[in-house]
Nucleic acid binder design. Structure first.
Length: 262
DNA sequence: ATGGTCGAAAGTCGA
């Protein structure tokens, strides 16, 4: 069977119900993984997702900031959450799919503006988060999918201007190195770059601050879908829905939809 | 080099 799994940093699920509806209207999605829902679990619009055909909701929300959720058409089993931030922030949620595959939805800390652990504790927290993820990743034994907003654009072609962004948090060499260590710890397959090989540019995020995001096209590939090597043969496609950046009152991130033959 | 815009919230802060 084919399973289509979407990942989207929605930048407030309550502010953008129209976007969720449009995505699900235009695309076949079986499981929707959201990041930055920005609401606690009691405020999550469960009824709206139920009406859209997603009655199975697994939430890890938080008031105001962060927050992740997995909405599904089919029953999935909750799996223990991880706290890679080590402070209780809602940045990871996980479920077991039919067939036993573990689906991990993660929202990696953005890391602040200054790429220096001493001057900016948020940057250190981001690096520490990824180091804890790497420890976790190295000991995984089940077939797994790891997706979400990683807040790192690893390759030169994952940003609009490699040299200009070398000192910009999300593309610094230390972040790229630590993300590579995470990837190597389990042999994760970067499906985005499997489907759109370098040096083709590929972006998933465009700042709100540009006058015209499409004309300037100063994007970054911050969102990713990875799978463990034992699932590599099941990957059918991954679509990056760039036009969604131009929808009404958009998120600054666009949805990714990965399709697997399981 | 700087500022530019969002959302949540009612200050600014984080992104």
């Amino acid at each position: 069977m084919s399973l289509r799994i979407a990942s989207w940093n929605i930048n407030s699920v309550r502010a953008r119900p129209h976007l969720v509806e449009r995505l699900l209207d235009e695309q076949r999605v079986d499981i929707l993984c959201l990041q930055e829902t920005k609401c606690d679990d009691n405020s999550f619009p469960l009824a709206a997702f139920g009406r859209l055909g997603f009655p199975h909701a697994h939430l890890a929300g938080q008031r105001m900031h962060h927050g992740v959720a997995i909405l599904s058409r089919i029953p999935v089993e909750p799996v223990a959450r991880e706290d890679w931030q080590a402070n209780g922030e809602a940045r990871h949620i996980s479920v077991r799919l039919p067939g036993g595959i573990i689906l991990n939805n993660v929202y990696v800390p953005a890391g602040g503006d200054i790429p220096d652990r001493d001057a900016n504790p948020k940057f250190g927290q981001k690096l520490d988060f990824l180091a804890r993820m790497t420890d976790w990743s190295g000991s995984l034994s089940e077939p797994s999918i790891l997706l979400g907003d990683f807040n790192i654009a690893p390759h030169p072609e994952d940003v609009w201007n490699h040299k200009a962004l070398l000192d910009v948090v999300s593309h610094t060499p230390v972040e790229v190195e630590i993300l590579k260590a995470l990837q190597d710890s389990h042999g994760w397959m970067d499906i985005g770059r499997h489907v759109v090989p370098r040096p083709e540019p590929l972006f998933t995020w465009w700042s709100y601050r540009a006058r015209d995001w499409a004309a300037s096209n100063r994007g970054r590939r911050l969102d990713h879908v990875w799978c463990s090597p034992d699932l590599a043969g099941t990957v059918r496609s991954l679509d990056t829905l760039v036009p969604a950046r131009g929808w009404e009152r958009p998120s600054d991130h666009v949805p990714l939809i990965a399709e697997f033959d399981l």
